[in-house]
Design a protein around this nucleic acid. Structure first.
Length: 440
DNA sequence: GGACGATGTCATCCA
DNA sequence: TTTGGATGACATCGT
């Protein structure tokens, strides 16, 4: 790429050279798409004869054979830029990476759709996954969702300076945010704690979604919450922390398998679901885990879905907030979620534009390189043409001298005299000695 | 284990 | 002042 840009920069130099050496040719001539005639056929000379009558006689094909030495017949025909550029770059669109294709929307109408979308397909785009994960928030409530801060225990971001108030983040369980505390014990949430969590706390932890259900039911997709909202009492901490996700069993079914929606291997520290999605390509029916914000919303019992938080217009969003009595912590979290959600979309759009810009610049670079090649070819043709015309002029000059005679009928020596033309068109025979003096 | 692409997030600027 | 879009930078993940 660097070389390409260096070559591109040479175009300006090339054009400057053209102007200096071929000053009589205007820039417009460089835009001509017509090929220069092969020199050997002297079509070039005929073309010149239209504009330079004196040269026309010199370029008479009948006499041109004597000038092959000046104007090589091997001069290649100038290529047609109009066809070349299109031929070379006509398929430039094919260079567009597949990732540049317009994103398609995915229906988010049901949990079934969501599950299907997460199985056997890599996430087609982030927006759909957002929608899916948002549904996950409200459908997973009955699935013994553990309000886990596991990924939050990891470093959120090396540069994170904590834009969110500490209270609003489960990253900081010691900050005293009520929403991140165990409902029963009041202790901060710490999922999968190897030692610190008591069995009572674990059970309360496991049962937390049940407590959340009472508030969140109105927002759950119909039919999604009822079968899953009674966590099996037999779930232990070790089960909930299992690294082997199993299909969920409804309460009425015997021997419910341990459920772990937070397989560490599938969760990113950012709470994104793409990792889990990629893992679901294997055909696993394990639903995608909740994002970090979804879990935060779950923990703080935000009483409306994330897609509303993120996508509602500001007026509707504020109106939504007025419909509920939210704590400062909840408000801060909601605003953080809204900010992050919008920024996520913005980042996706930004990256898409950046890729499109790269493709556009690469295409433009190719076009400019083709233009440069065309100009170089034209310069070569013009140089050959100029050399040919000079040869013809020299020959005509000698021919004129051969017909000149002095008073004694003797021919003038071309070494002693020269022909000069004045601005008014008069031609004088000037001795070289006088010419030299005039110059002095 | 390092390179690389994808993605989410944060900080910052700006309208 | 608030809100949100745009974007660079960074972290993390999976391949």
């Amino acid at each position: 790429m660097d070389m390409a840009w260096q070559e591109l920069m040479a175009i300006t130099e090339l054009q400057e050279f053209e102007v200096q050496t071929e000053g009589s040719y205007e820039t417009a001539q460089y835009q001509s798409m017509q090929p220069m005639a092969p020199a050997g056929e002297f079509e070039m000379s005929q073309s010149h004869s239209e504009h330079h009558p004196p040269a026309a006689a010199a370029c008479d094909p009948s006499t041109a054979a004597s000038y092959e030495g000046c104007y090589s017949a091997e001069a290649p025909a100038c290529h047609r830029l109009s066809s070349n550029t299109e031929a070379v770059y006509g398929n430039a669109d094919s260079l567009l990476p597949q990732r540049m294709l317009p994103m398609s929307s995915h229906p988010q109408s049901s949990l079934i759709n969501m599950a299907a979308a997460t199985q056997g397909h890599r996430r087609p785009n982030a927006s759909s996954s957002q929608g899916l994960s948002r549904h996950m928030l409200w459908t997973a409530l009955g699935q013994n969702v553990r309000v886990r801060a596991g990924d939050d225990l990891e470093s959120d971001s090396g540069l994170s300076l904590g834009s969110s108030p500490p209270l609003a983040s489960p990253d900081n369980p010691t900050a005293g945010a009520p929403g991140y505390q165990n409902i029963d014990t009041g202790t901060p949430y710490r999922d999968c704690e190897p030692e610190g969590m008591t069995e009572h706390g674990r059970r309360a932890h496991v049962h937390y979604p049940m407590d959340y259900q009472s508030q969140a039911v109105p927002f759950l997709p119909s039919g999604a919450h009822a079968p899953y909202f009674s966590p099996h009492p037999g779930f232990s901490h070790s089960q909930t922390c299992s690294m082997n996700p199993r299909p969920l069993k409804q309460p009425g079914q015997a021997a419910p398998a341990p459920v772990d929606l937070y397989d560490n291997a599938t969760m990113t520290s950012r709470g994104s679901s793409y990792g889990a999605h990629a893992k679901s390509q294997g055909g696993s029916s394990t639903p995608a885990p909740l994002s970090r914000d979804e879990r935060r919303a779950l923990a703080l019992k935000i009483p409306f879905p994330l897609d509303k938080i993120i996508n509602l217009p500001v007026d509707d969003f504020n109106e939504l907030l007025t419909q509920y009595t939210l704590t400062d912590t909840q408000l801060a979290l909601v605003r953080d979620i809204r900010r992050r959600g919008k920024n996520k979309v913005a980042a996706q759009n930004c990256r898409k534009r950046k890729l499109e810009s790269i493709v556009h610049l690469e295409r433009e670079l190719n076009n400019l390189q083709a233009q440069r090649d065309h100009l170089a070819q034209e310069r070569l043709e013009f140089q050959r043409s100029l050399a040919f015309i000079k040869c013809r002029l020299t020959d005509l000059y000698r021919e004129v001298f051969s017909h000149l005679r002095d008073e004694d009928g003797q021919p003038y020596s071309i070494d002693e005299y020269s022909l000069q033309q004045t601005p008014d068109g008069s031609i004088y025979l000037v001795p070289h000695s006088m010419e030299t003096r005039e110059q002095c």
